[in-house]
């Protein structure tokens, strides 16, 4: 066996290895430990301003295949009692049975069914979202913010996603006024490759 033959063999092996790894979806854990992720919501107050809040506790993971986005998937579980709108008495109200009813429904969850890439590179993540005891299919519009090595020997990828929910679809019918029937969710997700 001459040296050049060995070189070519190694190269082929390396290429094979590379191509298989790059085509398989990589698995990521959402970095909730270092909290490089957030689940935010906004809803209009009387139609005059945006009220913003977020869920402090959640967890999730995703797999991402840059070459074949349809191989990707994501699932997130939210602790509904961790709702925080920066006002204790409002949060108490949001946790009550007039809104999230967190005693009865302590978690909300999203699980993707399909991921499709649009021409501009953004993603449409279709999946089941369960909230307040109701499960519905929703679409999250997501874009990749970036990915790459982190300075500590790991590899990360991050996404932004948004979706809009009609509260009444989930059985939350407290009258917040005609301008406040929908809530916008914005997810900022950074995953650490496992």
């Amino acid at each position: 066996m001459n040296k050049s033959y060995l070189k070519i063999l190694t190269l082929i092996a390396a290429l094979l290895l590379f191509s298989t790894t790059s085509h398989a979806a990589e698995h990521y854990q959402i970095d909730t430990k270092g909290m490089h992720a957030s689940i935010n919501f906004k809803i209009k107050h009387l139609g005059y301003s945006w009220l913003k809040g977020r869920f402090e506790k959640f967890s999730g993971d995703f797999s991402y295949d840059a070459k074949q986005p349809s191989n990707s998937q994501v699932s997130v579980t939210i602790d509904t009692a961790s709702v925080n709108s920066n006002h204790a008495e409002r949060d108490k109200h949001l946790r009550s049975d007039e809104f999230l009813d967190v005693k009865k429904y302590p978690t909300a969850a999203f699980k993707s069914q399909s991921v499709t890439a649009k021409a501009d590179g953004s993603l449409i993540i279709k999946g089941d979202f369960s909230l307040h005891g109701v499960k519905k299919t929703i679409e999250i519009h997501a874009t990749k913010v970036g990915e790459g090595k982190d300075p500590w020997g790991g590899y990360r990828a991050g996404f932004s996603g948004t979706t809009r929910l009609k509260l009444a679809d989930y059985g939350i019918t407290y009258n917040l006024g005609p301008a406040s029937t929908h809530v916008d969710l914005a997810l900022e997700i950074e995953g650490i490759r496992q």
Binding site: A88, E89, D91, K92
Partner: peptide
């Protein structure tokens, strides 16, 4: 933790 809820 959750003082308003608990006290309520």
């Amino acid at each position: 933790n959750n003082q308003a809820d608990l006290a309520g």
